[in-house]
Computed example of a mutant assay.
Amino acid sequence: MSQPTGLTADQLHTQLRRGASGVAELAAIDLLITAAPFVLTPTRPDVVRHAIADNTGLFLRLDWGGLMVEVDQGRIPLSRGERRVVDIALSLALPGVTVALGHALTGLDNIAAGAVLGAVRAVLTDGADRG
């Protein structure tokens, strides 16, 4: 395993999507890509776990706990709206992390609010499909 290097943002995003372990984590990654893309850049390897290769190629895992620490300790500067987006993504990806969705949606711009609603819809649709 090694740290990802030399990736474009699009390549990083594709490989993080491939490494998602379920619909909720995929929705959280897509939320960050859409509404807080600077959090997931090739220049921020501190929140991307080691690259893992399997028989289908390379994929990456996001270190959600590491992201939470980086944000909580102020190492990733965020506006209040951006912090709300990250908090919602963390709540989708990490069991036991909760967020008051009504409060978190307050003050988001249309793009961020739409991305949050899309992420929540993806998770709820998946749950409904499982019956």
Results as ranks from 00 to 15, higher is better:
residue 84 R to E: 13
residue 51 A to C: 02
residue 44 R to K: 10
residue 42 P to T: 00
residue 7 L to N: 05
residue 118 G to N: 15
residue 83 R to I: 03
residue 99 V to Q: 01
residue 62 L to G: 02
residue 28 A to N: 02
residue 110 N to K: 13
residue 49 R to N: 12
residue 15 Q to N: 09
residue 126 D to K: 01
residue 85 V to K: 02
residue 3 Q to H: 14
residue 63 D to N: 15
residue 56 T to L: 11
residue 114 G to A: 14
residue 45 P to L: 10
residue 53 A to D: 13
residue 110 N to E: 15
residue 34 T to L: 03
residue 40 L to N: 02
residue 14 T to M: 12
residue 34 T to M: 07
residue 126 D to V: 04
residue 12 L to E: 02
residue 103 H to T: 10
residue 60 L to F: 00
residue 4 P to N: 13
residue 108 L to P: 08
residue 28 A to F: 08
residue 121 R to A: 15
residue 7 L to T: 03
residue 37 P to I: 06
residue 68 M to K: 13
residue 61 R to M: 11
residue 84 R to M: 14
residue 12 L to F: 00
residue 22 G to D: 09
residue 111 I to H: 05
residue 110 N to M: 13
residue 50 H to E: 11
residue 26 L to F: 01
residue 88 I to A: 05
residue 6 G to W: 02
residue 37 P to D: 07
residue 105 L to F: 07
residue 102 G to P: 03
residue 68 M to I: 09
residue 108 L to V: 05
residue 108 L to G: 01
residue 109 D to F: 11
residue 28 A to W: 09
residue 46 D to H: 07
residue 20 A to S: 14
residue 62 L to W: 01
residue 50 H to C: 02
residue 100 A to W: 05
residue 9 A to T: 15
residue 6 G to V: 06
residue 16 L to V: 04
residue 76 I to H: 00
residue 52 I to F: 12
residue 128 A to Q: 11
residue 108 L to C: 04
residue 81 G to F: 03
residue 92 L to Q: 00
residue 56 T to Y: 09
residue 71 V to P: 09
residue 47 V to Y: 00
residue 30 D to V: 04
residue 94 L to P: 05
residue 18 R to M: 14
residue 126 D to A: 15
residue 68 M to H: 08
residue 25 E to V: 12
residue 73 Q to C: 11
residue 79 S to P: 12
residue 49 R to D: 11
residue 44 R to M: 07
residue 42 P to K: 04
residue 113 A to Q: 10
residue 47 V to E: 05
residue 78 L to T: 05
residue 24 A to C: 07
residue 10 D to W: 13
residue 122 A to C: 10
residue 101 L to C: 05
residue 50 H to W: 15
residue 95 P to V: 08
residue 72 D to P: 03
residue 45 P to S: 09
residue 117 L to M: 15
residue 19 G to R: 04
residue 100 A to Q: 11
residue 85 V to S: 01
residue 64 W to K: 04
residue 94 L to N: 04
residue 18 R to C: 09
residue 71 V to W: 13
residue 87 D to Y: 06
residue 15 Q to S: 08
residue 59 F to M: 10
residue 79 S to Q: 06
residue 74 G to N: 03
residue 101 L to D: 07
